[in-house]
């Protein structure tokens, strides 16, 4: 039970890491980044690739591989934003969606070309592969560490959003982009950096979560769908909403495996549908 609980919490935390980037990007740029799952997948593959180069399965090499993968994915996001995405802000919803879909297809093919179509597995750092005994139950150490890393990222994010000038600008831009532009803030710079940070978070989540399961090129759509669910339940653009939603979804998945194995996934989508429909009841007859 405690183990399943931790399972759910860890999965929820990983979901939050990816969903936070998605919701951050949407909040500022109004772009729904369909490629976010692909960036997560890329992060996982990069970690797999970098770990042996950085000295095998020690904690230090894993940590540096995770960080480096996240940075590389963030840089890729930056390049994509500056070269392509920047040209279509304000264009039709569909075109923005399609541009990110194009990135999904390209990344999937690139990953297949470099690492092949088979499952790969990223080893846990050897010293973290044990279990921690608390009371009578053994809890996998690596999950606890991954969860803790998530907490650190949340703390960092909250402090940046609350206490720095960049955070103030971001919150302002989420509320009213036009007004921020009127204040003489360079919007292009905000958009690029937010997109890069969002991609960094996706890469971080992918690399960090890679040892939990098999990594393959099909990860992209599986993950993006769950990330959408989290972002929608939490409210598009809301970080705290995404955190609550991610942990809840993780718990439903983690506990659902014991109590209603066949229904857990359907239940998550039903919750998402219910949240959307209930929210729509509060609005007028047609809201644009």
């Amino acid at each position: 039970m405690a183990a399943q609980l931790l399972n759910g919490l860890t999965e929820g935390m990983m979901l939050f890491l990816i969903a936070s980037g998605l919701t951050l990007i949407f909040g500022i740029t109004r772009i729904v980044n369909f490629a976010h799952g692909s960036l997560y997948m890329l992060g996982a593959f990069l970690a797999y690739h970098l770990m042996p180069m950085l000295g095998g399965s020690t904690v230090a090499s894993f940590a540096s591989a995770v960080l480096l993968s996240a940075i590389l994915v963030g840089l890729l996001g930056l390049v994509f934003e500056v070269l392509i995405l920047r040209r279509i802000y304000g264009a039709d919803d569909l075109l923005q969606l399609i541009i990110t879909l194009a990135l999904v297809l390209i990344l999937r093919d690139v990953v297949k070309a470099i690492w092949g179509a088979n499952d790969i597995s990223v080893p846990m750092p050897a010293s973290l592969s044990g279990a921690l005994q608390i009371g009578g139950t053994f809890l996998p150490l690596f999950q606890i560490v991954a969860f803790a890393v998530g907490l650190v990222v949340i703390t960092l994010m909250v402090s940046i959003m609350r206490f720095t000038r960049a955070g103030v600008l971001l919150r302002a831009a989420t509320d009213d982009r036009g007004m921020v532009a009127l204040l003489g803030i360079n919007q292009a710079w905000i958009f690029s950096s937010v997109f890069a940070v969002g991609c960094f978070l996706a890469g971080l989540a992918g690399a960090l979560a890679a040892p939990f399961g098999n990594v393959n090129y099909l990860l992209d759509t599986n993950i993006i769908v769950m990330a959408f669910v989290v972002v929608v339940i939490g409210g598009l653009g809301s970080l705290s909403g995404a955190l609550i939603a991610a942990l809840s979804v993780g718990m439903v998945k983690g506990l659902g495996v014991i109590y209603f194995p066949r229904l857990s996934t359907v239940l998550i989508f039903l919750i998402m549908a219910a949240v959307l429909v209930i929210r729509s009841l509060g609005r007028g007859a047609i809201s644009k």
Partner: peptide, 24 residues
């Protein structure tokens, strides 16, 4: 009942429900 991206997300949820039911 929904518009724009919310419409898209709800259609996605509906199709994932169908997919999951067929799968499970």
């Amino acid at each position: 009942r929904l518009t724009h991206i919310y419409f898209a997300m709800l259609t996605l949820a509906c199709s994932e429900i169908v997919f999951t039911v067929l799968f499970q």
